[in-house]
């Protein structure tokens, strides 16, 4: 069968919305794009454990502590499914870690911001997980089967996290003056980075067109960003907080909220490594990996010894 017919078969699966599975032929660029996107997503889950992990030991009540601990654990679980999905494309988890640790692979820039007060646990759940859900729900129908199936599980848990975050914000917003101040301060700090999570504008997003064609992506960055802004403005009214963007205004003609200019210099600067916590986040991951080397080596050595002994017993 000539090569072009593999391509035709692949294209026809995509067009008929039939998922691509690990053993199917796929174009190299499709594979590369998916590895990049899925591993970046997995890294984001793992690095994303750090800013919230900060508050586990300081959570203000035992119930909140348990919920936060379970939430951060869920993120580790998401990392695990996603690394496994990426592995089906022919890359190992160790290779992906190496790309993260050497800076070759990126993770979501949002996690390069610090968590300064308890209200950040609310704002992250509400806004960051909220934005993540907007991005991720369409991925449950993405063309690559293992990724789509992983995302179904991820999205279920993320929507639970988002409700928990909103509930933290609501408790603070309805609380004392200082609690309300805490909530507003966290909202002010997390708002702009959250809407930057959808990535550069469509005009500046070189990969979007091909990804939409391959049905890896289902909506453009700007479409998703607008949807998020529209939903969040309404939720802010329920909280009784003020939008951090003074240019937010309902546009009757568009049927959407207009919003003010995004500081793309800040966005690109953080992507390039110059955010407030880029170094700390990456160092934390590298340290966990480097300090764990002797543990992983020991586990391997022990497993090998055990296997040899069991083999010996069988032979005898």
């Amino acid at each position: 069968m000539p090569v072009h017919s593999f391509q035709e078969h692949f294209d026809s699966l995509i067009d008929r919305e039939i998922t691509i599975e690990p053993k199917d032929w796929m174009p190299d660029d499709y594979r590369k794009t998916l590895i990049r996107q899925i591993s970046q997503h997995a890294h984001s889950e793992i690095v994303g454990m750090l800013p919230e992990g900060n508050w586990i030991t300081r959570a203000p009540s035992l119930r909140r502590k348990a919920v936060l601990l379970a939430k951060v654990q869920d993120e580790a679980g998401h990392g695990l499914y996603l690394y496994s999905a990426a592995e089906t494309l022919g890359i190992t988890r160790d290779e992906m870690y190496n790309q993260l640790h050497t800076g070759k692979a990126k993770y979501s820039s949002i996690f390069n911001y610090p968590t300064l007060t308890w209200a950040d646990m609310g704002a992250i759940g509400w806004l960051v997980d909220g934005a993540a859900i907007m991005n991720q729900v369409p991925l449950c129908r993405t063309s690559y089967g293992p990724y789509a199936r992983a995302m179904v599980r991820v999205c279920k848990e993320e929507s639970f996290h988002q409700r928990q975050g909103f509930e933290i914000m609501l408790t603070l917003a309805k609380g004392t003056e200082i609690q309300k101040k805490m909530a507003q301060d966290a909202f002010n700090r997390w708002w702009w980075p959250s809407i930057m999570m959808f990535g550069p504008t469509d005009a500046e997003s070189p990969n979007t067109e091909q990804s939409v064609r391959w049905r890896i992506k289902r909506f453009t960055n700007d479409e998703l960003r607008q949807k998020f802004v529209d939903v969040t403005v309404e939720q802010t009214k329920v909280l009784g907080l003020e939008m951090p963007d003074k240019d937010i205004k309902w546009n009757e003609e568009r049927g959407h909220y207009d919003f003010g200019p995004i500081n793309w210099d800040e966005f690109w600067n953080v992507v390039k490594g110059n955010g407030p916590c880029n170094k700390q986040r990456l160092d934390a991951r590298k340290n966990a990996w480097d300090n764990g080397k002797w543990v992983r080596d020991a586990a391997m050595a022990h497993a090998a010894k055990r296997k040899a002994r069991e083999g010996g017993v069988k032979a005898a």
Partner: peptide, 14 residues
Amino acid sequence: SEWCGHGPILEQDI
């Protein structure tokens, strides 16, 4: 809980 996010192996972190 201080280990959360810093474990030597992701499965063990969990």
